[in-house]
Amino acid sequence: MFHFVVAIPCLIVIFRYLIPLKWPLWFKFLLSAVLLFVAQHHLLTLLAFGSMFSPEVPRVIVLAVNWIFGTMLFLAVLQIAVDLIVLMLMVFKRRRIAIPPVLRYSMGALALGVAAFAVSQAARVPAVKDIEVAIQGLPAEFDGYEIVQLTDLHISRLFEAPWVEAVVAQANALEPNLIVITGDLIDGDLDVRRTDVAPLQALSAPDGVYTIPGNHEYYFGYPQWIEHYQTLGMQVLANQHVAIENEGANLVLAGVTDFTAGRHAFPAPNVEEAIAGAPDDAPIIMLDHQPRNAAVAAAAGVDLQLSGHTHGGMIVGFDRLVARANNGFVSGFYDVQEMALYVNNGTGLWPGFALRLGKPSELTRITLRQG
């Protein structure tokens, strides 16, 4: 179904944009072939590499494919909009109206430019985003406590070692008390990503670096990756918690496995198990890659949940569809039964859809405040 859906904008561009242009037939045929190839690049990646989530091709090709793919999507939207306007004018004026070539060329130029900008926004090292969270019952000892949240790094041929090094340097420069990574650190097997993830070992915070699995960890050898994360100095919270102590006061940091874990024959997320035995009356921060089950954490007494997964919806407008697939959660803060949920836009994103418009990537510094 996915591969059929992404073919629709391609067909719109071919039949409603390319064919009416007065270009040589061979040239239109060539462009159509390129568009069909790019429209199905996820399927081709699956056939070539065994997974559509990790195209093992040079970074410049990943960028170029996303640029053409984005151009196709934006051009399809523009073409539909123009067709609707022309249709309404034809009904109103009761005569046939042709789309002038200059308008078609302008649409093409605009789509190319917007797609290039969208790819550049997706591939950049994110800017720091500062937020504050008020927590009822937060001990005074943790007022002003700083957490850096990274999520959805999707370390891959798009986000290689130099990008990871820049993200790590930026996170460390903030000098937070704690660093958390809420899943989807990688795209690819350990043997092809080992060098690219190595810079994560330099992440440093006084109270440690913690991570949880996202759905993509399960696509590429979950046990091997979890073990490797630990060798890089990250502590993995898989239905577990730790108590962070500061001058006799406690703050609980818990984490669960991903919503999809059970499909891969691994332990499903279990909030109750994750917080079992936690110090009484200590505020609880839950790390859960996907935000969709935030109500479960809220019912269990969690005070703050940090999630990712949605990439913020990536594109304004498209984010509404992403929200519907995640119980309405897509980007930013939500109040879930008196629990604060923060859905991070993502530090990186999946290289198969490397486009961002109005939903920027972020490296998030969270400051806790007494509520």
Rank of each mutant, 00 (worst) to 15 (best):
A109R: 03
R157P: 03
S156M: 11
D143Q: 05
I155A: 08
A173K: 15
I61A: 15
A340R: 15
D191L: 06
M234S: 02
E338N: 15
V197D: 05
L84K: 00
L368Y: 02
Y222N: 01
S106Y: 06
G313Y: 01
I179G: 06
A118P: 11
E160D: 08
T211D: 00
L84T: 15
D143R: 07
E165D: 13
F142A: 09
F142V: 06
H264R: 08
C10L: 02
G255R: 04
I19N: 07
E146V: 12
R95V: 03
Y219E: 05
V102I: 14
H3M: 08
G70N: 10
A300M: 03
M234H: 00
P213E: 07
R157H: 14
V86E: 02
F318H: 13
E141C: 03
P267L: 06
T71H: 06
M234E: 02
G70L: 09
E273T: 08
L357S: 07
V236I: 14
A295W: 01
R94I: 00
L84Y: 04
V192M: 03
P24C: 10
V330E: 02
L304M: 07
L153Q: 13
P9I: 00
I179N: 01
S120C: 11
D189G: 11
A140K: 13
V236Y: 01
V236M: 06
P101S: 02
L341M: 13
L35N: 03
R96T: 15
M88Y: 12
G328M: 01
W350C: 11
E227I: 09
C10M: 09
F92A: 14
L321Y: 15
W23C: 13
A268Q: 14
V6M: 12
E132F: 07
H3L: 10
K129Q: 15
V167L: 06
G358M: 05
G277H: 09
L110Y: 05
L35K: 00
Q121G: 12
Q170S: 15
V34L: 14
G346N: 04
D187T: 04
P126R: 01
I285P: 11
I181L: 11
I155S: 06
L75A: 12
E245K: 14
P126H: 00
Q149H: 07
Q40P: 06
I68M: 08
E338F: 07
A118F: 06
L349A: 08
R365V: 05
D281M: 12
E217L: 12
I285G: 04
R324P: 00
L138P: 01
F159Q: 13
I85P: 02
A323W: 04
D335R: 15
V133R: 07
H289Y: 07
R96M: 10
R365L: 15
A64F: 03
L237I: 06
G262L: 05
L253F: 03
P279T: 05
R95E: 07
P283M: 05
Q136I: 12
T195K: 14
G332C: 10
A268Y: 01
Q136Y: 09
P360W: 04
F353A: 12
D303C: 08
V102L: 10
